[in-house]
Amino acid sequence: MNTNAKPTFQCSGIHIHIGEKEVVKGVDLTVLPGEIHAIMGPNGSGKSTLANGLMGHPAYAVEGTVMLAGEDVSAMPPDEKARKGMFLAFQYPVAVPGVTVASFLRAAVSAVRGVDVPVREFRKELLARMEDLEMDPAFAGRYLNDGFSGGEKKRVEILQLLMLKPRFALLDETDSGLDIDALKVVAKGINAAASNDTGLVLVTHYQRLLNYVHPDVVHVFMEGRIVRAGGPELALELEERGYDWLEPAAAAGGV
């Protein structure tokens, strides 16, 4: 971690409404290049809403400011944010039948890098990253997320992270539903991204991910707010005690 570095990501005063309902109630977060933050919180507390809203999901009304490497990207549509270096690994990646992983990724890589990557060069890079993630090369020819197992979908999200090399990535439960080998592979991908100076926010329910990935900060997220922040030891405490003991903090409106 580089303490002199300028934040790669910064959001402030984020409120998100779904219809009439306020789901995210004021979130501020600063992430430096190469930093790993974990967000942990109960089901339904608004973590995915925060992640999707920050990325610009059209169903969510987002207030507040989102800065990427010092640039205000709040008003940008999701594709522009992506081209500025923002990435979201989805909790539930959607299938796009008929579009192969390879052709999709080539389009995405070309869009994000702003150059048409030659097919051969692209294939070489793709196969190398797939090998890093211990993926069968046949996946390149399969339709994106179509009929993929839960774990396969998560691996493909990490593959995209490694191919797109964003400045900042939000990973929404990319560790959920993984067997132990897959978890190690995903952790390896996350660590590789961090050592490449990508700032990361991991939304997770499981302390076990943190055995392989060492977060700089752990945030506890409840009822639409970050109610506590601390070091990795906070994750252990949550594992032992659950979230109940933090309810007074949540009721008080967070940190």
């Binding site: 990325m55 610009g56 594709d79 944010k81 081209r83 979201l88 989805f90 990646p93 869009a111």
Partner: peptide, 12 residues
């Protein structure tokens, strides 16, 4: 599906 592809940098 649109959001997924857009979030990967593809214009609408």
């Amino acid at each position: 599906q649109l959001f997924y592809l857009e979030s990967r940098g593809l214009p609408r």
